[in-house]
Design a protein around this nucleic acid. Structure first.
Lengths: 234, 234
DNA sequence: CGGGCATTTGATTTAGCTCAATCCCCGTGG
DNA sequence: CCACGGGGATTGAGCTAAATCAAATGCCCG
């Protein structure tokens, strides 16, 4: 347990919540976290700043994003509950990207000193972190390949399919998902414009593949057709 | 030293060469490598196969590539001398991508058992590997952001600039680089077509930014203009 | 000298962008 | 209860960057 002083957003008493780490190897760390919440739009890490923390997301969704000189930003990664962000070491260089809350977020912050001590005591933890990082690398490379060649339709369909897979535990024939992103955010993530994203959604709806009952909800009426649309030029 | 039996491409006697690892923390590993060479086009890892090895590139260039159902492939990463490939652990899942030699390659292969033993003995090594992997992740995310928004000209200019930076140690006003990739490979890397790559090169040449004396050689006549072209919509 | 390949160049098509208008959903206040 | 906004989403009408299709050129190597 870390006996840091609490602030409006940090409450040491909540650290037990941090025990919800999927990975058993990371259990030793779980007890050491400081609970913290972020409001939608709040950024935890800013590109260029030194990275002082390492954290694990409990609830909510964050984006890793790169804002280019022209001001438009690109989402180069999404962080879901269970994902780590920041770095466990102090010696790492400046942050390469911003990390911003897309929804209200609750996370478990680990001071780097704690992580470091913990890693020395539990070598399996470091390996687990390396394994996760390598998996993430493979995943980002997959995204890279999609951005390189896939059509707008395939990108949108792929995003819906992936979100449904991640969100909806049920594999019912007809499944309904609440997309966690606005059209604009989807555009930033998929390298498209808002209009194009919207058009492709309409197209999928017109083809009877999905239903759009309103808001950000999507009903997957034909999972196979959706998967096929996603594969198109993947 | 590993006393494995030698094969046409493996020669234990060459393992001393493997000492050329940039990172001091990885020195303990250096003595344990098995030297191996690959011909251009030979693939060391195939997507879907279990990954049995971990290696460090000594000389030459490799591509990490994803071949989609349609048969076109996308280069999702380049591996330069000093870079690691594969995974240090046996428990990792199937390879997410192919890894293929773009030139004749000489590398230093580390059997996973050896790496594992070595990592237990030298914890700093595991950290070094984690740091490298995180750096690579940041780099791939940078590429992702470029593919999402940059124009064809910016992609090509960026690639030339980056290659020059990596290759040519000299920062002379006029610098000359031998591009390690064919136009087709550049297209696969940048998410463009051969024709578009060629046109952008011609455009840069016409603008006096670069010279194309022949073959794969590029003379950088105006580094500032090249950098500016690369930033365009980065 | 000639064949095979990579590269360049040209002509045309098209997917997705831009600009612009409209719609829809909701919260707000009269 | 309904008018009024306002932000996100959708739809429409061109436009443009890059893809595609096709041909010509250059180059390496036997």
């Amino acid at each position: 347990m870390v006996f840091g002083k609490s602030c409006s957003n940090c409450d040491v008493r909540d650290s037990a919540l941090c025990g919800v780490l999927a990975d058993a190897a990371l259990a030793p760390l779980a007890a050491q976290g400081i609970h913290r919440t972020l409001a939608r739009g709040e950024s935890l890490i800013r590109a260029g700043d030194p990275i002082r923390l390492c954290a694990n997301i409990q609830r909510g969704l964050m984006k890793i994003c790169h804002t280019n000189p022209a001001g438009q930003d690109v989402i180069v990664g999404l962080l879901w509950p269970g994902d780590f962000l920041g770095t466990p070491f102090a010696e790492a260089g400046p942050a390469p990207h911003d990390v911003v809350a897309l929804t209200a977020v609750s996370l478990c912050v680990f001071p780097q000193a704690v992580v470091e001590r913990c890693m020395v005591a539990h070598p399996a933890m470091e390996r687990s972190l390396l394994t996760r990082t390598m998996a993430e690398l493979a995943q980002v490379r997959g995204a890279l390949s999609r951005l390189a060649r896939a059509t707008a339709l395939a990108r949108v369909a792929g995003f819906i399919a992936e979100t449904a897979h991640r969100r909806g535990g049920t594999d019912a024939a007809v499944q309904s998902v609440e997309l966690p992103l606005s059209r604009g955010e989807m555009a930033d993530l998929l390298g498209l414009t808002i209009e194009t994203v919207s058009r492709q959604m309409t197209r999928l709806k017109a083809a009877g593949v999905i239903g759009l009952p309103g808001g950000r909800r999507v009903v997957i009426q034909d999972p196979d057709a959706l998967a096929e649309a996603a594969e198109d030029a993947l």
